[in-house]
Design a protein around this nucleic acid. Structure first.
Length: 495
RNA sequence: GGCGGCGUAGCCAAGUGGACCAAGGCAACGGUUUGCAAAACCGUCAUUCACGGGUUCGAAUCCCGUCGCCGCCUCCA
């Protein structure tokens, strides 16, 4: 029985979708004016696990995640410039070129992290009519007003305003950072539509003149366009609770008179050395830099290690980024990968036979505990713990050698593929395979190892060890065993 | 100032009042295996959950207080 923590009620609730067997989920996507960073990774890996698990449970899921390519300002909702617009001017290209460039970059990084693509990735600029229609509905209903080509949402017309974030309008009035604006009725009123000044590159016709949409409106408009006026899950970063999600609720519910979202899920932030990683702080790490080993990390982080690292903490907990923690995660993942490889390689050449009682019991217990962890608000950290414990047992049984039959190994492999692969996305077809190499390289390594074997047989261990050291530096890990040496290209090694 | 969260072993990190004298990973130490490595396994590693009270038959888990850290109230995943 799946339970999820709902930010709206601040408690763990039993999850029941609006329509049986179907789940509609919307997650706030990136604003595409720069490369993605590890904060994006945490958010989208976390929600990827959520979606994967819902699908594993048998739900038909429609996953919508927007791409913000217009309307997100560098400052608050009625000052500042459009982020994409600013970047376009800096680069000397059209805004849509900026958006396309970083949209591709985003998906590239997410693919590397084994994040499954959303079913629908609507961009704000492609849904201007939907946004205008929603704004018009709000104006007609008395929830929004026009001032000189701009339209603002009237927060005082929506008594529920502040419920999600635990605020009330009086407090907002006293807030140090919300300043009164001449053209707004209440300082907390926010822009639905902005007037394009003459120099502004992005401009669309609207009933209020030439302009562009505010940032919050796209999410209300697009989520309802694809998921209906009421849908199951809305996810996003905790920092977006106010004002972004609060405003989304206000816009949607004031327009439809119905509940907008049933379950609000919020993931916590990434910190670096205990400090929030933020654009304004200048301490953010892009995924491309991290994967390539460029500063500030200087060591290449394998994307799958990043994914594993993220999933070893709960999505609602903050995650502190450090090289030490990443290295530990890398070792932990490798242990699982080694076991997967060992199991897959042993599949041939094992005796026929049904799984032993021991194996069967291990499989049953692991599955049960794993699912219990995931049922508890998608506790991937606990679930990975179960995978690790399972891995130790698998290795132990294989070391002992007697209890493992072909069918037993098949079942073990299947559990890895289902729980580690399908659900967590940390086990893939690659996990059990050595890094591919162009033919001649493999042959050369084989040739060197043959020579090395001769050296070993002749007792020239220093020379043999030297060969092994040299190969290791080249990224080839050699393992001696009773049946002769085996080798593989190390993962994550510069090649 | 208002709202919210966190503080669990050397480090990272689960833990929804009772099977917790607290998962899992990393590190460390001892051992098995190995020519040596690597990999893997076995054992040791928090009688205790920031601190002080309280509620309860029972608390890491609930309540109050203290200290420390963090986030939101501007843009941010």
């Amino acid at each position: 029985m799946l339970k999820v923590y709902n930010s709206l009620t601040r408690r763990l609730e039993q999850f029941e979708p609006l329509h049986e067997g179907f789940v509609g989920i919307y997650v706030c996507g990136p604003t595409v004016y720069g490369h993605s960073h590890v904060g994006h990774a945490k958010s989208y890996v976390s929600f990827d696990a959520v979606v994967r698990y819902l699908r594993f449970l048998g739900y038909r899921v429609r996953y919508v995640q927007n791409i913000t390519d217009v309307g997100h300002l560098t400052d608050d909702a009625d000052a500042g410039e459009d982020k994409v617009d600013v970047k376009a001017r800096q680069m000397g290209v059209a805004p849509m070129e900026v958006a396309q460039l970083y949209t591709r970059s985003y998906f590239e990084d997410m693919d590397a992290l084994n994040v499954q693509r959303p079913d629908i990735s609507p961009c704000a600029s492609g849904h201007i009519p939907e946004q205008i229609a929603l704004i018009r509905k709000l104006v007609d209903g008395g929830h929004a007003y026009e001032v000189d080509g701009a339209v603002y949402f009237d927060v005082q017309s929506f008594p529920e305003y502040g419920r999600l974030s635990g605020r009330n309008l009086d407090e907002l009035l006293e807030g140090t950072r919300v300043e009164a604006r001449g053209d707004k009725r209440h300082p907390a009123d926010f822009a639905l539509w902005k007037k394009s000044e003459p120099g502004h590159i992005m401009r669309w016709d609207s009933p209020w003149g030439v302009g562009y949409p505010g940032w919050h409106i796209e999410c209300s408009a697009m989520s309802m366009a694809y998921l209906g006026e009421t849908f199951d899950i809305h996810g996003g970063g905790i920092e977006n609770i106010f004002p972004h999600h609060e405003d989304e609720i206000a816009q949607a519910e004031a327009a439809t008179g119905q509940q907008f979202v049933r379950y609000w899920l919020h993931n916590n932030m990434v910190t670096v050395d205990g400090q929030k990683m933020g654009k304004s702080l200048g301490n953010f790490i892009t995924l491309k830099d991290a994967f390539a080993g460029r500063p500030p990390l200087d060591t290449p982080i394998r994307p799958m290690v990043m994914r594993y690292f993220i999933l070893t903490s709960h999505y609602r907990s903050p995650l502190d980024f450090s090289m030490g923690a990443l290295e530990a995660a890398g070792k932990g993942l490798e242990r699982i990968e080694n076991a997967v490889r060992r199991v897959r390689e042993s599949l041939r050449g094992t005796v026929e036979g049904a799984p032993s009682g021991q194996i069967q019991q291990l499989l049953d217990e692991t599955r049960e505990k794993f699912l219990a962890e995931m049922d508890n608000d998608f506790n991937t950290a606990g679930a990975i713990g179960e995978m690790s414990a399972f891995t130790r047992e698998v290795n132990r049984l294989m070391d002992e050698g007697d209890a493992v039959t072909r069918d037993g190994l098949e079942a073990v492999n299947q559990l890895y593929e289902q729980l580690g692969g399908q659900v967590l996305g940390i086990v893939t077809d690659e996990s059990g395979r050595a890094v591919e190499s162009a033919g001649i390289e493999s042959d050369l390594v084989d040739a060197m190892l043959e020579v090395r074997e001769d050296l070993r047989k002749a007792g020239h261990y220093e020379l043999a060890d030297g060969v092994r050291r040299r190969l290791s530096k080249l990224g080839v890990q050699v393992k001696d065993s009773a049946d002769g040496p085996t080798w593989r290209f190390k993962k994550g090694a510069p090649s």
